[in-house]
Design a protein around this nucleic acid. Structure first.
Lengths: 211, 211
DNA sequence: TAGATTGTTAATCGATTAACAATC
DNA sequence: TAGATTGTTAATCGATTAACAATC
């Protein structure tokens, strides 16, 4: 079986996003050419990406938008709901809890944790901030599948260790530090400052050769 | 002059992050091998990346951490401060304003805007939410260089148009929709739901060949 | 059937890595 | 000087794109 380039899953997310919009606009069918143009890709890129997972189109016709969306969501694993907890009830934690787009994609935040006694017990929307001490118990009881690290970098590794001990297999890490986890645990890193730095890199750009 | 791979600037941000931590820990010198290992790269990757911009090391010795950090920050354009405005005073806007890591990297949020009359005039920390009508005036007066789109997808394009009219050249777009801007305007996209989907893709993964 | 567009193979392009001369 | 590590070239690897037979 063909090895799937690491770049594919990000593009699948973009196809999904785009198809959702097109369906809202009433579009029933789309060619790889049209989908590619909307995203600034080549049509062969779109067809190749999809071909790793199956054959979803009709030659001469294109792709049924609803069917293709369904297939892509199945590939991405967002055809089901996921139980998510957030560790760290700071501003980022708050924002994530209220982030509609996660909910719309089936990521349901079912718990929020902190170690700060001043925060524990307070409410954020429907959720009550829980003591980190009770983390493992909660994860077992609520069958949590994904944990989000939204604590300061200094405590990120410690939090990661607790997550791993709890049996959770998937982590989204917002803390700008590399965390070490055992084999079999999947970590996705997201550093909000990186797009800002990419931007200033390009704005400044960039014949810098000072030594 | 050598073309710089598109992947380089992200890694430069990671080198920067790592060097900052190492300096805090008192490390004065580092080899490409050691830096690479910390980030899971090959040492030749590190040396090649740096070589696009100059020769910052000493053969037989390695890199002075302070000096290398300084050079990388100059390359990334974060050796100076940047004036940033946020459009959209929702949860994400709130979180960004209070996000220490942006401040630490020299990204200063100097204004926050919304169109909701209920929000306009309210305070978030030191900032008062300003009417979007006064956006262009504010940008001129405060010499704003970067705008952040933190509004719902439905109004993202309209906001982008206003940003472009204001003369701002750099945009960070948190709204999960592709925005169109004229040549010469730089847009960095960040979709918070993508790492979640990457994660479920891997967790589900993924011999899917259903058709 | 003729026209269109897929799915897939092969060619191209770009990025990473190994290797090594230069040199601290 | 001997040992270490850089900076850079060339080889390898992986991802994108063009091209086209298959087929709706």
């Amino acid at each position: 079986m063909n090895k799937i380039p690491k770049t594919v899953s990000r593009r699948l997310s973009l196809y999904q996003r785009c198809l959702k919009n097109l369906i809202l606009q009433g579009k029933k069918n789309i060619s790889s050419k049209e989908l590619a143009e909307k995203l600034g890709f080549k049509s062969s890129q779109v067809r190749k990406d999809l071909s790793y997972f199956g054959a979803f189109g009709k030659r001469g016709v294109g792709y049924d938008t609803n069917y293709l969306l369904k297939m892509i969501e199945r590939i991405l694993g967002v055809n089901k709901s996921w139980s998510v907890v957030v560790i760290g009830a700071g501003n980022l934690g708050h924002a994530l809890i209220n982030y509609e787009i996660l909910k719309k994609n089936g990521f349901y935040i079912v718990g929020i944790f902190d170690i700060d006694p001043k925060k524990i017990g307070k409410k954020i929307g429907e959720l009550t901030i829980i003591n980190m001490k009770d983390f493992k118990e909660f994860v077992k009881k609520s069958k949590v599948e994904i944990a989000v690290i939204a604590v300061p970098p200094s405590s990120a590794q410690q939090v990661a260790d607790t997550i791993v001990e709890s049996g959770i297999k998937g982590i989204v890490n917002f803390s700008p530090v590399i965390i070490n986890v055992p084999q079999g645990i999947i970590v996705e890193e997201i550093d909000i400052s990186i797009p800002f730095k990419n931007l200033t890199f390009k704005l400044t750009s960039n014949g810098f050769r000072g030594a």
